[in-house]
Design a protein around this nucleic acid. Structure first.
Lengths: 234, 234
DNA sequence: GGTCCCGTCCGACGATGTCGTACACACCCG
DNA sequence: CGGGTGTGTACGACATCGTCGGACGGGACC
């Protein structure tokens, strides 16, 4: 549809200007007659995708910016999580990762190395299997739409268990590694990330091969602290 | 304009869902026939204001979210351009660079060395003069607002020439080097980058000191291929 | 296998989007 | 102060494009 494509082009021009633009400049930029651009802008004004200053110049409108507001800025997430992630690494002695759900992919957005001299590789940007990592299990269990939950092999029972206990354990995604993760919530209470640790089984599990309660509490509390940084009141 | 208002309503519904929605649900929510909603969604998909999962359900797209974010993701740009840039370097035998406009600065974001044994220096991050490089001339000629175009010494005539012929030539910014560049367009048709080659005059120019048609075609076609990767239908 | 519901495609048709012309206004210059 | 220039906006003719019913393929369910 030509008019939608033209409107999108206009929005991109206005966004790219970083400030305000007049009708004449917008028309020139998108290659349209001034009156055509003005018609499009009038409707964009009506739906508040653009706003107009007192001189008649246009900028992006709150109606458009508000559409994207529900999509948390990953940099802000990392920024608010990093101190708690560092502290969790120190207290637990294990590597700490923060991951988000991108579509149905689990993506590491922050990684703090285990605080020792071992050789480690930075994981940021890595995509993790959703069903075999603690981070993935948390994100999928709390995902808002069922199509994502469907990818977990363990099915409904596991989702319920993770949601009920409020954390997930990872059983051997990498040989010699066990993981724990808990949900990080945004201001609305929706889960926007997962925070977790990974380490050798003898560090993370007790004699009965259950996760150490002390570590579970640390992970859950750290995730809740990050959540409070993001505006969650729970 | 009815179609823009309808599209805005659809975007508000999709944003409000916080996840994904099907065509039927979106149509019901905005009170339109399914096929009407689908037509609108197809165009919104084309300009990446929505994205579609493998089950055909729609969510807000990066194209919309990025409007608020204020910039094209340079890493995505490089990622999509790099294969074509490599191919262009191989075919043309010259160094290839990709640059974007950052305010009124022309910044190299990707560089493929000339495929020979000569010593070369990686240019990524380098700021180029807008008026004396082919990359700069392209970006400025297609810039959305005239304040950027004002920086070009050659003025209105040069801008018109570059826009008309669809590529620019560089005349001696560096001694012994000539460059060609063409615009790279995003999904809405706006120019988001420039792709170009540089090489010695005898390689780039013919006997009459005009750019070799073969190389111009290669550069223009490669830039168009990158544009199509970015969602441009031109 | 049958049913239901989904997303998508096709094409007829008329409603709406396109855009040239004109105007009011603001600013600048001699 | 008057003339020139360029802006944003309004109006309306017209043909292009947006609308949407019908149909279809595919997947899920019984």
């Amino acid at each position: 549809m030509q008019s939608l494509e033209r409107a999108a082009a206009i929005l991109q021009v206005v966004a790219g200007s970083g400030g305000t633009l007049g009708v004449t400049d917008i028309a020139a930029a998108v290659g349209l007659p001034k009156t055509t651009a003005h018609s499009l802008l009038r409707t964009l004004l009506g739906v508040r995708f653009v706003e107009q200053d007192h001189q008649g110049r246009y900028a992006l409108g709150q109606g458009l910016l508000r559409l994207g507001a529900g999509h948390l800025d990953v940099n802000e997430l990392r920024s608010r999580a990093s101190n708690w992630a560092d502290a969790l690494a120190s207290r637990s002695g294990q590597a700490v990762r923060l991951a988000t759900l991108d579509g149905d992919r689990v993506v590491v957005v922050h990684h703090v190395f285990r605080p020792d001299d071992s050789v480690q590789v930075l994981d940021v940007g890595t995509v993790l299997p959703a069903d075999r990592t603690a981070l993935g299990r948390v994100l999928v269990a709390f995902a808002p739409h069922r199509s994502v939950r469907g990818v977990v092999d363990g099915g409904r029972a596991e989702v319920t268990a993770v949601r009920t206990q409020g954390w997930a354990v990872e059983d051997g995604h990498l040989p010699g590694t066990v993981g724990l993760a808990a949900p990080v919530r945004g201001s609305t209470g929706l889960v926007v990330a997962a925070l977790g640790i990974t380490g050798p089984p003898e560090a993370v599990l007790d004699g009965a091969r259950r996760p150490r309660g002390r570590l579970v509490a640390m992970v859950v509390e750290s995730a809740q602290s990050v959540s409070r940084e993001l505006g969650w009141h729970g």
